[in-house]
Amino acid sequence: MRLFLDFIPVLVWAILAVVLVIVMLLASWVLRPHVLQNSEKTSTYECGEEPIGPARVSYPYNYIVYSILFLVVDVMGAFLWLFSVSALRLDKMVVWQVLFFALFIMAGIMFAVKILPQTFLSGEETLKLYREAKTKHETKEVHH
């Protein structure tokens, strides 16, 4: 009995999910009325307002730190999973290693969270920069 035989239902399910989505999209494409498509018809509906620009905007860069923090915890969780399902969890030497590993990564995350405010502009700093630039611009206009 090979291991993959247990997981064949998962494969069938995954392929079924993909096929179902494709079939539903195709069916709705077949069944929908094919009327004239113009730019007014295909534009996004925003409660009667005319949409300005594309729907996707760019977010501030500093949010990537949070997904990196998640990645670190993810990898740590995988290692701890392997430790927790084995009989080694009763071995004292290994428990010390695991404790050191977990505390080390936790300390790193604590340090990261501590220096996190230094890595992006807070609201006050943004406002200050904006005001500085604005006064600079206005004084220049006065000189002109």
């Binding site: 860069y61 990537i64 990196i68 990645l71 670190v72 990898v75 995988a78 392997l82």
Partner: peptide, 23 residues
């Protein structure tokens, strides 16, 4: 397993470097 963990680390650094290149 070790390769997957290191891949996570280098991808994180590569994405931040990519953003800074764009900046």
């Amino acid at each position: 397993i070790l390769i997957i963990s290191v891949a996570a680390a280098h991808t994180a650094l590569a994405m931040v470097l990519m953003l800074m290149y764009h900046r």
